[in-house]
């Protein structure tokens, strides 16, 4: 089993949710985060005083899935979240050791 973490543009979230639904992926956990990477600074002015903003709002989402679903999910993320510009985000894949569903105590694949 794997955990996929994806950092994406907030504006792409709804589209991605629909694309994941298409391939039968419903369970996601997401965070509103701020971060910086390749995207350049943005300037804001308050009464003429400049403030340089270098942390941008992003959405980070986590999906835990069977090994064989990983490529499928990644391709859905790439399909919906790519604009080709700096700031599109990143995808990370991790191995998962154990999964337990709290309500039923099911474990492993049955808990997904």
């Amino acid at each position: 089993m794997k955990k996929i973490e994806a950092i994406i543009r907030p504006a792409k979230l709804e589209e991605l949710k629909a694309a994941l639904e298409e391939i039968g992926v419903r369970g996601i956990t997401l965070y509103e985060v701020k971060g910086r990477g390749l995207q350049g600074n943005e300037k804001q002015y308050y009464r003429g005083q400049e403030h340089s903003i270098d942390l941008f709002p992003k959405v980070k989402l986590e999906i835990v899935c069977h090994d064989e679903s990983v490529e499928n999910i990644i391709s859905q993320i790439l399909k919906t979240c790519k604009t080709g510009k700096k700031g599109d985000g990143k995808i990370f894949v991790y191995p998962v050791e154990r999964i337990i569903r709290i309500s039923t105590r099911e474990e492993g694949g049955a808990a997904l």
């Binding site: 300037k43 002015y45 308050y46 009464r47 003429g48 400049e50």
Partner: peptide, 16 residues
């Protein structure tokens, strides 16, 4: 003045 100086007119500038 702000628009010419920094390229954008701000809400705070209009109120000020």
């Amino acid at each position: 003045a702000e628009w010419l100086h920094h390229g954008k007119p701000t809400a705070l500038g209009l109120a000020s």
